[in-house]
Amino acid sequence: MSAPEGSAAHIRFAVPEDAAALDRLDRDTWSYLHAVQPLPPEPSPFFNERFGPRDHLVAELDGRAVGYVRLGLPTPLESTAHVRQILGLTVAEAARRRGVGQALVRGAIELARRQGARRITLRVLGHNTPARKLYEAEGFVVEGVLPEEIQLDGAYVDDVLMGQPL
C-alpha cells in the first residue's frame, strides 16, 4: 500500500501479532467523540470471527503501529456485496496531523477497489468534525443523516452516512 505524498506512514495488512498493539491503540484513543460503545473491560480480543487481520490495514511510523482502518461488508446480504464500508478508523494522538488518517482512508479505498467494490461507505458521528473533514477531503459526501440516532454519555448525537462511488 502506498502512503500519500508527505506522509512517512507505511500502510500494510494487519497480522495476528498486531492484536495486542491494536487493542492498546483502541484503549489509548477511546472517546465518545468517535466511539458508540463504552470501553470494553480488559482484556478484549481485537480480532474475532467477524473481523480478522485481513480486514484491517495498519499504519506504521518508525516501525510502530500508530493507526488502523477496518474495512468490511456493510451487511451479510449478497445484494450489498458490491459495497465496502469503513467500520473503524483510529490514529494515535501523537501521529495525528501527519497524514496517517489520510493514508489509511486512501488505503481502504484502494483495497475496496481491488476487491471489486463499486461503492465505499461509512458512518461517522455528527459531532466528530475532524473525521468528517478527513472523509470529505478524500471524496466522501454526506448521503444521509439520522438525527439524534445515538445517545452517548447523556447527549443525543446524529449518525452521518457518507459514501462515494469507486
Results as ranks from 00 to 15, higher is better:
Asp26Val: 15
Ala131Glu: 02
Arg106Thr: 08
Leu152Asp: 00
Gln85Ala: 15
Ile109Ala: 01
Gly101Ser: 07
Leu161Cys: 10
Leu111Pro: 04
Pro74Gly: 11
Pro4Lys: 11
Arg54Pro: 12
Arg70Ile: 06
Ser79Asn: 14
Asp26Asn: 15
Arg27Trp: 06
Glu138Val: 07
Val124His: 00
Arg106Phe: 11
Pro40His: 04
Asp26Thr: 12
Gly154Leu: 06
Gly72Cys: 09
Ala65Asp: 07
Gln164Ala: 12
Arg27His: 08
Ser31Glu: 08
Pro41Ser: 15
Thr29Arg: 04
Asp153Tyr: 05
Gly99Cys: 02
Val36Leu: 07
Glu110Trp: 05
Asp153Pro: 01
Thr75Phe: 09
Leu25Ile: 13
Pro45Arg: 11
Leu166Thr: 01
Val66Leu: 05
Ser7Lys: 01
Glu93Lys: 10
Gly67Cys: 02
Gln115Met: 13
Gly63Arg: 03
Phe13Ser: 12
Arg114Asp: 12
Met1Cys: 14
Arg119Tyr: 11
Val58Cys: 00
Gln164Glu: 06
Val91Lys: 04
Thr75Asn: 06
Gly154Ile: 01
Gly116Asp: 08
Gly107Asp: 08
Ile150Asp: 01
Ala3Leu: 00
Phe140Asp: 04
His82Val: 08
Ala35Pro: 04
Thr90Asn: 10
Gln115His: 12
Ile150Glu: 00
His127Tyr: 08
Pro147Ala: 03
Glu136Gly: 15
Ile86Pro: 00
Arg84Cys: 06
Pro45Gln: 11
Pro4Gly: 09
Arg119Gly: 02
Met1Pro: 12
Tyr32Val: 13
Leu25Ser: 05
Ala35Arg: 08
Ile11Arg: 01
Asp62Tyr: 00
Leu89Gly: 01
Val36Ser: 10
Ala108Tyr: 03
Glu138Ser: 06
Gly116Glu: 11
Tyr68Glu: 07
Val157Phe: 01
Ile120Leu: 14
Leu25Gln: 05
Gly163Val: 03
Pro53Asp: 14
Ala92Val: 03
Val141Gly: 12
Arg98Val: 02
Pro165Asn: 12
Glu17His: 13
Asp62Lys: 07
Gln85Ser: 15
Glu60Ala: 03
Leu71Gly: 04
Arg97Lys: 11
His56Cys: 03
Leu152Pro: 03
Asp55Met: 13
Phe51Val: 02
Ala108Glu: 07
Leu111Asp: 03
Ala137Val: 08
Gly67Ala: 02
Ala95Glu: 00
Leu33Gln: 08
Val69Thr: 02
Arg96His: 09
Arg119Glu: 15
Glu136Thr: 15
Leu111Val: 11
Gly144Ser: 09
Gly63Cys: 09
Met162Cys: 10
Pro41Met: 11
Gly88Lys: 03
Gly67Lys: 04
Asp158Gly: 00
